[in-house]
Amino acid sequence: MTTTPVTTGTTGATDRVIGYSRAINEALAEEMRRDERVWMMGQDIGRLGGVFGLTRGLQEEFGPMRVRDTAINETFIVGGAAGAALAGTIPVVELQFADFLFTAADEIFHKLAKWRYMHGGQFTLPVVVRLPSGVVGGAGAEHSQSLETIAMHVPGLKVAVPATPSDAKGLLKAAIRDPDPVLFFEHKGLYRVKGPVPESDEHVVPFGSARVARAGNDLTVVATGLMVDRALAAAEQLAPQGIDVEVIDPRTLVPLDIDTIVASVERTHRLMVVHEASRTAGFGAEIATQVQERAFFSLDAPVWRVCGTDTPLPQDPELEQACIPSTDEIVAAARALAAI
């Protein structure tokens, strides 16, 4: 694991500005071109191109056998992917919403996570499960959750949480090339966000390398997904108030680049973790614990969390936003923390 933040996997590539969705679509297309064993299945991903349009054009290019529309059958989508991996293919499957990992829980947490282990390491399961995740605006309690911590808790699954178009593409390509099962949490609220993405077929972001999204000296904020942008916005508001915030995006939660976080905390002496998922037993708790295990004597203040509420998410878009951290809340918490 490196402590040096990696921004891109390539050098000298030209950056273009494209959307997060487009970046994912490119990664899928490029990897399917690169390796014939890569194929996809999921609900509405073929003819429609995905309910969020992520797989648009792929069935046309790769045909209905490699981009397959399934019935509403998450246990088959994930369990079938596990079985297909055993037969030497690389399935990249989509659950229409990350929330549906609960409908395929046995397949994800038992089959994907444990099959290799239970059978003495005889098999590899190079499966990517794409999981449109997070609050998007009125999708309701069963279509809006951030479940990455649950995935973190079961050994055997790698977990990616891209926050930018560049990382969405680079991490997805890394996920597809990874021999282990990867749960790929795309944030639905970021699908329309644009950003620079290197123009390269080899733009691969290695797992386990955090990105320092903003350098600062007074407070380290760890955030993922949609919360990265909010943390950055908060940092800009806090700067004139004399609080110079460093924002770190771990990019993958399994493996977790705790080294970069610890190194930052050793400089700033303060840590705040921001996550959209519910407060209790979220990944913030894990990061807080690991940091105090590693860097307790660097801390000027307790590790702080700014998190989603311990409630289901209401369907009303305004109420829903009130349930996840806002830029204002991050600012308020940082200011309160500064009093310590």
Partner: peptide, 17 residues
């Protein structure tokens, strides 16, 4: 019962390959 979906998936891979 987990072998139902896995078996179908394995067969899907054979069909693809």
């Amino acid at each position: 019962g987990s072998s139902f979906v896995m078996g179908a998936g394995t067969a899907a891979a054979s069909q693809l390959l």
